[in-house]
Design a protein around this nucleic acid. Structure first.
Lengths: 189, 189
DNA sequence: TCAACAAACTAACATTTGTTAGTCTGCACA
DNA sequence: TGTGCAGACTAACAAATGTTAGTTTGTTGA
């Protein structure tokens, strides 16, 4: 049991440090020190610092892509789709808050190829989110307000969940989901 | 006219680059190249790279501090106070989106002293924002939901305005303020 | 005409960085 | 007992970084 191999350990430690200080402020020696080994030893498990970043970010970006595709394929109301989107963000954030912070803060440090891939996924994700909102406006489920504003208001809240969740131990995931859906859809009044 | 002195030029160019790549990924040589001078020449105007960061971030943090203090001192309804907070964020973001991005992304790279000062201001800002929400709950103006959730939902939306505003040239500040207040207070339904 | 100064330059520095090469050690298994 | 290998190590590298020292250049006001 607890068969966490060394590579996963490295990825988790790195994500934690990246979250605290940012990718460029964390050196391979910093990561190594946290694991009580020397920097050169890291290269027995990973091929480069870039690879650490890629494995951390791309995995989560793909999870979002898969998640929204699944939601989009279902024949349910817009409100239900939005509820599932809230759930998706919560699930992925709670599963690995450090990596999620990394996605939000350090994606621009990906190398060209992975950067292009990431941006493509992000754009498509936002496009699909936007489509859901537009569909809701057409059907009358959603108020006819500025779509871009609604989109980024929801997205920014969902994307920065990692910043404050964790200080409130009392808040259970199911309750968080219910409260967050309520606030995002109906506001605070 | 256009008496922008060299120091301001440096600060603006630096903020633009910091926004694109992050503080640690931008070298003094990068900043200098953007101004068609050599890195050493920058030191005729500024004392260190840290100083650039400090001047950029602290100014805005203090503007927020002053802004919320002014709002707090007024004897108006909670709803009116929240509207003024929305206005404050919009005003400061539109005045200098690059510096605002810098505040959001690079504050952790401030040196100890300024970092402590910044965090203190940020905590007090959030405390005052939270107090306004709590007052609203007591008076019945605001729904009795999780305060932390409402606080960070609003804050994350307001703080990341710089990420998407600018793609929508058509949206005027006054309209943005009205729409954003509507979405944050009453939701999207 | 010349002194003063702002603001650019060249050259160099000590550190830090990511990474590689080559080596050592101890466990698993034949 | 011995072979192989995972995974640690030491040593070193070239490149990039922030910064300093000392110098040149051009404009401005006496």
């Amino acid at each position: 049991m607890e068969k966490t191999d060394r590579k996963s350990e490295i990825l988790h430690v790195a994500a934690k440090l990246f979250r605290e200080r940012g990718y460029n402020a964390v050196s391979m020696r910093d990561i190594a020190k946290e694991l009580d080994i020397k920097a050169a030893s890291l290269y027995n498990h990973i091929s480069s610092k870039q690879e650490i970043l890629e494995l951390t970010i791309i995995r989560i970006a793909e999870a979002f892509t898969n998640g929204i595709n699944l939601i989009n394929s279902q024949d349910i109301s817009v409100k239900e789709q939005l509820t599932l989107l809230v759930e998706l963000h919560i699930k992925l954030t709670l599963a690995d808050p450090d990596a999620m912070a990394c996605v939000n803060n350090d994606w621009m440090h990906l190398a060209k190829q992975e950067l292009d891939y990431f941006i493509q996924m992000r754009n498509r994700y936002e496009d699909k989110f936007r489509s859901i909102l537009k569909k809701g406006i057409s059907s009358g489920e959603i108020a006819d307000l500025n779509v871009e504003l609604m989109l980024f208001s929801m997205l920014s809240t969902l994307r920065t969940l990692h910043l404050w969740y964790g200080r409130k131990k009392s808040l259970q995931p199911a309750q968080l989901k219910a409260d967050m859906t309520r606030v995002l859809l109906q506001g605070i009044l």
